[in-house]
């Protein structure tokens, strides 16, 4: 599903890339920029976390005039005299006037690197509101945001995720240079589809999907090395052949009473001792309880 979102066939909306300190999602973000530029789209970047050179490094030179970098990296809080774009300008009105400066009327893709920076300085409801407006707004074709999810509280991450039409969570792969992307996509009808893929990003920022990670159950068994059999080289025999098993089962154990044994031992034949008692009329049969005098 990752290539479809990358190609933008899933039309517009808000794509959220979630990463953690184990694996940076910026490379994937750049792949998104690259993909949008190759589609001849105009891309606006709100760059808080990396410098312009670093972001443009690796991107195609020829499409640079369609990439507008709004430098919020050098001075995001207005500490120096001439801030270009500060974090407090992150609102619909300010952004619209910023985009108008470039005098492009075509719908464009807005890339936010990163939402974590904004969320650290502006309250969550305000950010969510602006994002919602951007998502709906006519000039913006799509919003792509990067979020360092391990920097925020879980509830905050959740509320931003709810706004997104697609959420891509990246984490390092088990081996090699592949990484795992967990994609959740919400279609307009409300249907939610999820997918997990192993992907790698080449030097020219194209993304190749290498397949799906195996199920958690099977990965475990895969990881476990085949254990050495401790019963392999024994001086005695632990296993039974069928014949031996048969013989073993035939053997009667002592002190276990089978029917044959019982009858053999408790043989009741004629002539053996028996007590026959027939009560006689003269029998001195005491009606009273003989133990009546006992104090029990």
């Amino acid at each position: 599903m990752l290539p479809e979102i990358l190609q933008g066939t899933v039309g517009g909306g808000f794509v959220l890339i979630q990463d953690s300190s184990n694996y940076s999602g910026r490379q994937l973000l750049k792949s998104f920029i690259h993909a949008a530029l190759t589609r001849e789209e105009v891309v606006h970047v709100l760059g808080f976390e990396v410098s312009e050179e670093e972001l443009k490094d690796g991107l195609n030179e020829s499409s640079m005039q369609r990439l507008h970098f709004h430098n919020a990296y050098i001075d995001p809080l207005g500490w120096t005299e001439s801030p270009h774009f500060t974090v407090h300008q992150f609102s619909m009105e300010q952004l619209t006037s910023l985009f108008k400066q470039t005098q492009q009327t075509k719908p464009f893709t807005l890339v936010i690197d990163s939402l974590s920076w904004i969320l650290r300085h502006i309250s969550t409801p305000v950010v969510c509101e602006s994002l919602q407006q951007l998502k709906k707004g006519g000039a913006v074709r799509a919003v792509i945001g990067l979020l360092h999810s391990d920097m925020h509280q879980r509830g905050l991450v959740g509320s931003v995720c709810h706004l997104a039409t697609s959420v891509i969570t990246v984490r390092p792969g088990l081996r090699g240079d592949g990484a795992v992307a967990k994609t959740t996509k919400r279609s307009k009808t409300g249907k939610v589809t999820q997918d997990e893929e192993i992907f790698s990003i080449k030097e020219d920022l194209t993304v190749t999907v290498q397949g799906k990670p195996s199920q958690p159950g099977t990965t475990q068994t895969e990881l476990e090395e085949p254990e050495a059999d401790p019963t392999a080289n024994l001086t005695f025999n632990l296993r039974l052949s069928d014949k031996e098993r048969e013989a073993k089962e035939k053997l009667a154990l002592p002190f276990v009473f089978s029917k044959e044994k019982k009858t053999a031992l408790l043989h009741t034949g004629p002539g053996s001792g028996r007590i026959l008692y027939e009560p006689d009329a003269n029998d001195d049969y005491d009606q009273e309880d003989p133990d009546d005098d006992l104090d029990v």
Partner: peptide, 19 residues
Amino acid sequence: EDDGDEEGPERLLKGLTHQ
């Protein structure tokens, strides 16, 4: 605990690791 809401060196470390 990896809560994400602790205000301590752990969170500082994570933030710096991103940089």
